[in-house]
Design a binder for these strands. Structure first.
Lengths: 193, 193
DNA sequence: ACTGCCTGTGTACAAGTGTTCACTAATGTG
DNA sequence: CACATTAGTGAACACTTGTACACAGGCAGT
């Protein structure tokens, strides 16, 4: 699995990886592959599971560090960007998988995003934010937030790992996006919609 | 090019397509490929160019049909969904290319999206909407709109072509997203930001 | 010490891959 | 009509690919 991830990190697309290629990178004979995975799709699915762990770690850190609400968005985006850099290959895999060729992987990633969004909704409620929103509208808002961040991911991953200026730009722009979404949510009227 | 698109439409990922595979689908001998393209990346780039045409056609139709501002969002989303269905393979290619392995294709698609966003900004100004926004904030807003729609694209493409119920759901949700963004933009204060 | 299980090895095969070369059929322009 | 260009052909090359099989070493638990 690390071998596959390493190749993705080197710019390859997961869908174009072959069994032999992966085992070669892992320093193992091709046949060993079958001891662990039935197929490449299978490997992809297990990667999705690990991706879940990465996301959960990220949420935990965000919850621990975001204490005061005024800098909430900025801080969260910062943590997100940091994690995206630290687990570049994982997030590359995620971005690729969203439009990948394995339906199962696609669905897995989508499901992780849904979970993420629902956790975000919980946190907002716990912080007594956006209390005027109906459950459904809170759901829509959080979904939109997660999508926006996920899309920023593709920006982030398409620029060089250590181009600090551009990284700062992405961070700033993403923060703007989220601020705009939250202004929208704050002025949203759940009754009239 | 149509052959490559057809394969993508059949669920394959562009990055995993081979020259022989494409020529086979095109009903042509492998060597003929080189008469038209230097490599697969080259083919991808030319597809991006055609994608530009598709997007422009879509914009033209949207401009023609969206006359009254009250149903602006709903109408636009409808036109978008219709075009996405009519050019499914093209949009699949676009969704894949955003996180694809060819840097050039990636940049090409990104550039098409930027163009789309700037055209949207022009239209909004022409319609005298969101006039309180600074140029930069208008830019952010339109970018966010385009991203949101682009992400909805992946939702749309991952469901069956003729599952009208689910298509309706995506349309409704996307409309919500955009309404929320525009409420945010309407209540945005360009000076204090 | 013996037995199963797990992981990895080596060899093998049929099929598919990108790319090359010299060739021919069709096309439209002078 | 003659000519140059373009698009398509067929055979050939050196690899790479997925998968199957029988086999070997290391690790538990009895």
């Amino acid at each position: 699995m690390s071998a596959a991830l390493a190749l993705v990190g080197k710019g390859r697309h997961f869908a174009s990886l072959g069994i032999r290629e992966v085992t070669r990178q892992a320093g193992v004979v091709p046949t060993s592959f079958y001891r662990h995975f039935r197929s490449m799709d299978d490997l992809g699915l297990q990667l999705v599971d690990e991706l879940g762990l990465v996301l959960r770690r990220m949420m935990r850190e965000a919850r621990a560090n975001v204490l005061q609400a005024d800098k909430l968005i900025e801080e969260s985006v910062g943590i997100f960007v940091a994690h995206a850099q630290a687990n570049r290959s994982f997030f590359l895999f995620m971005a690729q998988g969203l439009a990948g060729e394995s339906r199962a992987v696609q669905e897995g990633i989508r499901s992780e995003m849904r979970f993420f969004a629902s956790e975000l909704a919980n946190d907002l409620r716990r912080l007594r934010l956006m209390e005027h929103l109906s459950d459904a509208d809170m759901d829509v808002t959080c979904d939109l937030v997660v999508r926006t961040v996920a899309f920023s991911l593709t920006d982030l991953l398409s620029i060089s790992e250590d181009d600090d200026y551009q990284i700062g730009q992405v961070r700033k722009r993403t923060t703007r996006f989220l601020q705009m979404v939250f202004v929208g949510a704050a002025n949203w009227n759940s009754d009239s919609a």
